[in-house]
């Protein structure tokens, strides 16, 4: 079976693909392709390290493999995997796959590392939702919505609705930061504030919205305010 050429193993550094270097070039490429194809949902777009079992691979195999992983499956290669002479062994996926629960509890702790980054302007009718922080290089126009379990950071103008700390009633100390604030509504946790209906005069500096007591306040952004905030979940 093709799969026996490739096995995967979970380490503290992340996922490692162990590949039998004794197989010929096309065998390796086909093996890796079918291995990832059958586990696409889990592996696609992920970062892996490569580990060769049975000595260094033949010349030319590694670059081809890298382009296969990077171009076709959008994966990244992590450097520094050990060259290994270890005995070739077959592991089943279930042995190292984190269970759904452990995966999520891990993500909770490393929220910022999983921020969703968008380089686009969100237009009317478009909605972005993530349990993690959301960073947008672009505007959020009137009629668009950003819902985040973490912080919302908009490197542009906020004209629509932004919701930070959406899955925590208290908001968890989450903030909304934008270069220019003209929001329809700001929501943090279960607190909602709306604009006064008048066109907002921009203060000319980036602004930050946070919970203060029972309401949301907007103030000029400064590192001081940010570091002074007690972060609920971190």
């Amino acid at each position: 079976m093709d799969d026996s050429i490739v096995t995967a193993k979970g380490t503290t550094d992340g996922l490692v693909l162990r590949i039998d270097s004794r197989v010929d070039e096309s065998g390796i490429l086909n093996g890796v392709r079918s291995f990832i194809e059958s586990r696409k949902k889990f592996l696609f777009g992920n970062e892996v390290a490569l580990e060769w079992v049975g000595g260094d691979p033949q010349e030319g195999v590694e670059p081809q493999l890298k382009s296969l992983l990077c171009d076709e499956f959008n994966m990244k290669i992590r450097q520094g995997a050990l060259q290994s002479e270890m005995e070739f062994e077959t592991t089943s996926m279930e042995d190292f796959l984190p269970t759904e629960e452990s995966l999520f509890s891990k993500l909770d702790n490393y929220d910022e590392a999983n921020a969703k980054v968008l380089v686009t302007t969100l237009r009317s009718g478009q909605k972005i939702e993530s349990e993690h922080s959301i960073i947008i290089f672009g505007d959020v126009n009137s009629g668009a919505e950003v819902v985040s379990g973490g912080d919302v950071i908009i490197l542009g103008t906020l004209r629509g609705v932004a919701h930070a700390g959406a899955y925590d009633e208290t908001g968890g100390g989450r903030v909304i930061v934008g270069i220019t604030f003209q929001p329809t509504q700001l929501r943090i946790g279960s607190t909602i504030s709306r604009g006064d209906g008048k066109p907002h005069k921009s203060s000319g500096v980036p602004e930050l919205a946070r919970i203060d007591g029972a309401s949301i306040i907007v103030e000029p952004y400064s590192v001081k305010t940010m570091t002074g905030l007690i972060r609920g979940s971190v």
Binding site: R123, G125, N141, G143
Partner: peptide, 16 residues
């Protein structure tokens, strides 16, 4: 007008 602009914005998103 704001209403026309918002609808145009929506359409631009769909065209994109």
């Amino acid at each position: 007008e704001v209403s026309a602009i918002r609808d145009a914005d929506r359409v631009i998103g769909l065209l994109a």
